[in-house]
Design a protein around this nucleic acid. Structure first.
Lengths: 253, 253
DNA sequence: CCGATTTTTGAACCCGATTCATATTTCGGC
DNA sequence: GCCGAAATATGAATCGGGTTCAAAAATCGG
């Protein structure tokens, strides 16, 4: 039945419209600037229609986050195949995430808000699943890089730790630093600046601690900086990261 | 003027009562279970009176968080003086935090919710300052341990990184792992269990990466476990951590 | 004890998420 | 093309809880 198909397509298009506009609103006016009735009016639909797509405001937020997570995750897909040593590829993953966060400050705040139990409790099960699934490619990229590092002998062979558990370290370091960096006034109070530079150094310490070859000392700033630049160049070359994102944006706009 | 003194004391006692009851409410019914008018009624005051102490609901939450942060921070005070190597003292800090988080699951969720920009924006400046100040002793403990490690030669000498910046690594690792561990269903989706065991291993990797002596390989589970137990025993002995907290609790109750 | 000042009170207000009775559109059968 | 049934869209009304503020009560200095 073709009619049914069209209906479904239209419904999806409408949902995409809602999500897109909601994201704009959040970008422009912050999370508080997003009001259900206003959003519906913006899209020229009634409030009730919005609720046929999203069980609640939080559900809508989760949908926005899932969409952006998919964009974010897409950036990681090509990293395992990059022409770099395994350790540098791991760094590439961290740098890609830093760049994404820097360009999408609202995304980070949104996910942080979402996983708050108060908010998460009002997200419908399918949306939760969708959000988790959206991040899958990232985990796969990490898994692939760790697995290859083991195969190539860059990492000591299996030591009761799975690929995912190995990736958990940089992941937590990343998330934690983003958290601290985003907490208004927190790091300033401790006279810490440029948190992402420190993230990179601590990342190298972590990798070196796991004996991931070739080792690189976190306390040689010039070496760290050179490696960062080298990997960033490869990322740019591969069309991953800022440049690529900007290009897409202007193409879409 | 003695009357004035009494007034001030009474006012502080009332504020403490509000904060205490609010905390109970949050513990029992979650953040959503806290309603301003209900809380006021619980304490046998009018709603308006509550607002003479707290500018908003968020402000009250910040006050609750500050109070608990003071409790938490107190646990770290004695750590720099513990009879342990500097690296083990650093581990003691991490373990103390893990234990605190395990015993106060609502505290972690609360702070995570608080630093969300939406929420943080509604916290009054004095409360923000108070919350930041409450955490100061933790940073001081870290600073002290790092400084002594340098002095004793357990850590390579100054390498353009301050004590605070050095402590930022484990701090971010901690915060990030707590974040991930608290996100309902997230780690399960990646088949990762016992996140705090991994936190400890990655912590050792991080320290070893910074060449903090005596080095300890993160991939020798039995060594890691033995060290954890050794440090936990010293903490217990010093009355820091779970045992101490439980004792205080039963004494107070 | 009195009027002025401060503090407390809690019902009313406000705002925005959510609902649901009603209106509209779509659809299959004639 | 037309009709009634089913699905869908509408947006005004509802609801809930944070916040306010005019009135009442308590405190104070004289």
């Amino acid at each position: 039945m073709s009619t049914e198909d069209r209906r479904k397509r239209e419904r999806e298009a409408r949902e995409a419209l809602f999500i897109e506009r909601a994201h704009e609103r959040i970008r422009e006016d912050g999370l508080l600037g997003l009001q259900m009735s206003k959003l519906a009016a913006d899209c020229e639909y009634a409030t009730g229609t919005l609720y046929q797509h999203f069980a609640s405001r939080e559900d809508l937020l989760a949908a926005v986050a899932a969409r952006t997570t998919r964009e974010r995750a897409a950036r990681f897909r090509a990293i395992p195949a990059l022409d770099l040593g395994t350790r540098s590829r791991m760094l590439a993953i961290v740098l890609t995430d830093i760049d994404f966060a820097a360009h999408n400050p609202d995304y980070y705040r949104l996910t942080q808000y979402l996983v708050t139990e108060v908010v998460w409790a009002n997200v419908s099960a399918p949306r939760r699943a969708a959000l988790l699934e959206a991040g899958q490619p990232i985990s796969e990229a990490v898994h692939a890089v760790v697995a290859e590092a083991r195969k190539q002998g860059d990492l000591p062979p299996a030591c009761e730790i799975s690929e995912e558990e190995m990736g958990l370290g940089p992941w937590a370091l990343n998330v934690g630093m983003q958290s601290l960096a985003n907490a208004q006034g927190l790091l300033d109070a401790y006279d810490i600046h440029r948190p992402y530079d420190h993230l990179i150094r601590h990342f190298h310490a972590l990798m070196t601690g796991w004996r991931w070859e070739p080792r690189l000392d976190p306390d040689e700033p010039s070496v760290v900086r050179a490696e960062t630049e080298r990997v960033r160049a490869v990322l740019r070359e591969a069309g991953i990261g800022d440049a690529a994102a900007d290009r897409e944006e202007s193409a879409a706009g």
